[in-house]
Design a protein around this nucleic acid. Structure first.
Lengths: 269, 269
DNA sequence: GGGTATTTGTCCGTATGTATT
DNA sequence: AAATACATACGGACAAATACC
């Protein structure tokens, strides 16, 4: 046999799940039953189940059993769209969007730090490594589900030039983008998003309550905002778990209306 | 005992990797050596290594050993940008972008099918389930590395109205967007991308040569293109492995210039 | 090419712990 | 408290891949 036994067992179970013979939320046979059914040892059955777990097809619950996963209703974030709102990422802007969908959003207090820019942040802001930057960090939840972690970095120079509220951990209700325009005359004219996916770190596993085996990865989105002189004025890094988030962006003329892809893979408008 | 032993071993090794004491491409101690070092059984050490593998921190090579991963130089795809080029996804358009970066791109022949639209495709094209659609499927590689799999769906009605070349497996060199404009007067005025991440299926694992344990997930991007009547004219589904791909999109005025995030997490412009 | 040592992969059986019902 | 089910841990045996002589 080309394939080891635990893979064959996994393939068999996977076929049953994908064909719909095993439905979401349905319990699989116990490890003991599967051991007899496939004539394998319990450890081999467990290897098969572990593979399906990594693939996100099943989940195990101690004391209960192994179940076919039921996907989470995803939250959809629109990354582009109305250019006038473009890049308004901190503060209340996204709250209205969330509320529109009858969901309840919550923000943590803003955690403020002054750091020496490491390489990755310095490069995004076009400043030398080690330059002081302000970081404003915030955690967000929707319907009590941890949703995203966001950190925005601004050159320390902005404070010296008069934007002192950047150093306040108070929420800047009108948005930092507008605040910087009013206080310093720095106007954001565009931004660039870089989307990556990676495994979560320990902090992210804890906040998002992700399985500690790292099978759920996170989006990491670097947003660099530019002012009228084509200089970076802000770098925002946002983390979203991939198991509950999708992103939309639109180019050109696109009809309005939600486009949500539901849990079973189908769509609705 | 808060943590089981295999997690403690994994955390210890993880700390060594993240602190740089174990560098990318460096070999870890063998399982036997780790067993003695931590006073655990070989299977327990293997559990720790399996965890690190799922987290993407190490990789094992039979007959050789276990090594700290060296990240792949990612390929960066710009999803928005020049509105005149917007949505030109099939054919030669992306080849120039690749060539500009001194990489060599290759496309498979287009695989053509006529299908009854399943729910997910019907919803994207606003047509009833079961309506006939044309699917044009293509696999793409860059520098001999499998890069993406793309399938575009068009209403069968387009062929009946005269766009017969949609049924040819020949590449439509000027791009299907332009072809539809010339042949039917259907003009694409915008599109919407929906970005999701999920585990790969068997076909994707094989084409992209992904590890069969499913620890590397894939982006699945649904692009719906709209014509001047705000009707969907095309649905394109593209799959990219998350371990070698990043996406950029820009809104407003953004200075030109590459923004690549290199393997170690730093950036360069 | 062949043979051998090394290293990881698969599979088994068993015992005990922990979470849930 | 007892039963059930998954989680952790151990030890052993053999297979498969690789490297080296």
């Amino acid at each position: 046999m080309a394939n080891p036994m635990y893979r064959q067992i996994a393939e068999d179970l996977r076929a049953q799940i994908e064909s719909g013979r095993l439905k979401p939320r349905q319990q699989l046979q116990t490890e003991i039953e599967l051991r007899e059914r496939y004539g394998a040892s319990r450890n081999t059955v467990r290897d098969a189940i572990k593979l399906l777990t990594t693939l996100g097809l099943v989940e195990t619950r101690p004391g209960q059993g192994t179940f076919v996963v039921s996907k989470i209703d995803p939250f959809v974030t629109t990354l582009s769209g109305d250019p006038s709102q473009a890049g308004v990422t901190e503060g209340a802007s996204y709250l209205s969007e969330v509320t529109n969908r009858n969901r309840v959003a919550e923000n943590s207090p803003i955690q403020l730090e002054i750091q020496q820019a490491p390489e990755s942040i310095a490069a995004g802001l076009w400043i030398p490594v080690g330059t002081e930057v302000i970081s404003r960090h915030e955690k967000r939840s929707i319907d009590d589900t941890p949703w995203s972690m966001q950190t925005s970095y601004y050159p320390m120079e902005f404070v010296e030039r008069g934007a002192r509220r950047l150093l306040s951990s108070q929420d800047i209700s009108e948005g930092t983008t507008q605040y910087l325009r009013e206080s310093l005359g720095i106007k954001q004219v565009g931004y660039r998003d870089l989307i990556t996916v990676r495994a979560p770190n320990v902090i992210e596993v804890e906040f998002f309550k992700l399985p500690s085996d790292g099978r759920v990865s996170v989006y990491e989105i670097f947003q660099t905002a530019f002012d009228g002189n084509a200089q970076p004025m802000r770098l925002t890094v946002t983390i979203y778990p991939t198991d509950r988030n999708q992103f939309i962006f639109e180019v050109g003329q696109v009809p309005a209306g939600q486009y949500e892809r539901s849990a079973d893979g189908s769509s609705a408008s």
